[in-house]
Design a protein around this nucleic acid. Sequence first.
DNA 1: GGTACTACCTGGAGGC
DNA 2: TGCCTCCAGGTAGTAC
Length: 278
Amino acid sequence: MPELPEVETVRRGLNELTQNQQIEGGDVLLARTIAHPSSINDFLAGLKASKIIQWHRKGKYLLAQLSPGFGWLGVHLRMTGQLLWLQQDEPLQKHTRVRLFFAQNQELRFVDQRTFGKMWWIPASETPESVISGVKKLGPDPFDPEFTVDYLVEKLKNRRRPIKTALLDQELIAGIGNIYADEALFLSKISPTTLCTALSKEQISRLREAIIQVLQTSIEAGGTTFSNFLNVKGINGNYGGVAWVYNRNGEPCKICGSVLGRIKLAGRSAHFCPECQS
DNA sequence: GGTACTACCTGGAGGC
DNA sequence: TGCCTCCAGGTAGTAC
């Protein structure tokens, strides 16, 4: 499932491959993939003849700045979405949802098994924040200067919920999902069930450092190999081999040898070491 | 306002 | 082999 490092990996690949390329047309194979505008024809007409200037990332959202007057193209990969840069005559994947056609027979193909992924065309008269409600509510990116220890302390001080649940809240920190929340909590030696109100400033500082470290490591590895993440060139990432706890329940902890556990928190699985994170 | 729960959705895994 | 159930999880909507 794409989280910040995977989305960042995709963004870098898209900037490498699609910058200054002109969208010549498209095809929407699954209408509900298009979140805005409500008309598929308007979506395709709005993009036609635009050029991709640059891809940006806000949390897990990808935002393509289009040539002047054309606005923006927004994409969220959600659980299983993939953006692939292919030749148009390559056979369609089973779960192909949207195709955007470019010159020289090239294509940007949106493939999404579980159909949760979304795309938006935002006219130049509007902004991504005004059209995509999720973007408007995003907290700071973990690499933003405003993501400080003091910011986290302030945001967590009155929250009576488990820290694992808080880390998944995109209004608090943008871009963290289930995998990296578990990994960051392990690295900072904090149990996922610890209430935010019970965390000391020293623990919060450790957690902040761990979040940045784990995300940076994964970006450098090209994203995770968990699930079916592929970058734009269709290549799997390399983070899976270095996971400390995620999806390793029942296996020994790499630090102390204890059997790793898994619990449910707010409907999501949390993986942890009962000894290191006590 | 803060928090928890549920729906959305598909395919793989496991049980029978 | 075939059928059924459970599980995975990001976000939006809803309930408390």
